[in-house]
């Protein structure tokens, strides 16, 4: 576990630059493998560096699974894919005990590990499985361990769940419970590709298959990145901004905007603030800085908050989504909390 205390000295440029080069290389390779998804790749790498789970939401065929597979190859980590179906059982994910006969002729229950015992678990179309099966991932995602018949088994480190879900097919699907949604660091929307990207895919990819990565990151390098992440400095005003931002998602908060007061039913949890801080660190690392700035928080805020803020029916009637609500907060809240009088404005010189 990383130490919560801030480092007494900043990462110096010479210490930071290898990590920055490494992340840039990963991003470049991802961009090469999957065309036209730079922003998404950036957020996915932020999520990986934050050691968080990512929920990818998009219509079929936009490259969700391909992205996760490419990531698995790129990171040189164990990769398992589980296609979530309505008849999938918890044991199909976490594993089960089966009766086996030993060479000595003795019969005993032996544990058969499920696909969750891996570094990267692709939970494809996670909302097609029943809530019972979805819940099998709760402990794995939060505790990074699996408890079965009283035995707790740790999962390999690092462990990521990269889940995908289809937002348009509602029949035969089970919406993820809030508790599980909250365990995802990000919920990223995978958009449609534009004309240029589609043209590139058709003209350069036979049957659309992405090329295999030419380079992969070792587990050791990934852990070095995690170590660097622990030394990214989070200044007090920025942590204060993250706290205010999270607290402002509550309709009764003093700094809540009109949109929040009108449309929000349930606000973001403390886990959201923690996730935002971690993701901001990763964003700063990708930007080549040893310190987190307000701009890093703004980059990750929407991805962190959009699945944690639950809107009411009025929001549906008014066609307001969580992105609009979060955007209103980012616009309204003064990052530095200067608390200047209303008629006193501050502008960049």
């Amino acid at each position: 576990m990383p130490d919560n205390k801030q480092s007494e000295s900043l990462l110096q440029p010479e210490e930071l630059s290898p990590a920055v080069e490494l992340t840039a290389k990963v991003l470049a390779e991802l961009d090469r493998v999957l065309l036209g998804r730079s922003a998404l790749h950036h957020m996915v790498i932020v999520g990986i560096l934050s050691q968080g789970h990512i929920l990818l939401e998009g219509v079929p065929g936009v490259g969700k699974t391909a992205l996760v597979k490419a990531l698995g190859q790129l990171l040189s980590l164990d990769f398992n894919r589980v296609q979530f179906t309505p008849d999938l059982m918890p044991g199909d994910i976490v594993g089960t005990h089966i009766l086996q006969q030993t060479p000595a002729g003795k019969r005993e229950m032996s544990f058969q590990a499920g696909p969750v015992f891996t570094n990267i678990l692709l939970a494809d179309e996670i909302n097609r499985a029943s809530p019972k099966t979805q819940s099998a991932l709760l402990e794995a995602m939060q505790e990074r361990s699996v408890t079965l018949l009283g035995n707790t088994r740790s999962l390999p480190s690092p462990f990521f769940v990269l889940a995908s879900q289809n937002p348009i097919e509602l029949e035969g699907t089970y919406p993820l419970p809030e508790a599980q949604l909250d365990r995802f660091l990000f919920k990223l929307i995978v958009p449609h590709a534009d004309v240029e990207v589609l043209d590139d895919i058709i003209s350069t990819r036979r049957r659309g298959e992405p090329p295999a990565p030419t380079w992969s990151m070792s587990a050791e390098q990934l852990h070095q990145l995690f170590d660097v992440m622990d030394r990214i400095f989070l200044p007090k005003p920025v942590s204060r901004y993250i706290s205010r931002l999270t607290a402002s998602t509550h309709p009764n908060a003093p700094e809540a905007t009109e949109e929040v007061k009108k449309y929000v039913t349930y606000a973001a949890s403390p886990r959201a603030a923690i996730a935002m801080a971690e993701a901001s660190r990763a964003s700063a690392l990708l930007a080549g800085r040893p310190t987190v700035g307000f701009e890093d928080v703004k980059v990750v805020a929407a991805a962190v908050l959009n699945h944690r803020v639950i809107l009411n029916y009025q929001a549906r009637f008014d066609s307001v989504d969580t992105f609009a609500v979060v955007d209103s907060l980012l616009t309204a809240l003064d990052e530095t909390d200067l608390n200047l009088p209303d008629d006193l404005e501050i502008h960049s010189a």
């Binding site: 801030q6 000295s9 900043l10 110096q12 200044p235 005003p237 040893p290 310190t291 700035g293 010189a349």
Partner: peptide
């Protein structure tokens, strides 16, 4: 002063370096 430093950091695009300078040594940064 901390708030003012944060404000200057923001408007100067220092990315948190000025804020960090209040508590840690920036060194080569």
């Amino acid at each position: 002063r901390t708030t003012l430093r944060a404000s200057l950091d923001k408007y100067s695009g220092a990315g948190g370096l000025m804020m960090a300078a209040e508590t840690v040594e920036l060194g080569n940064w």
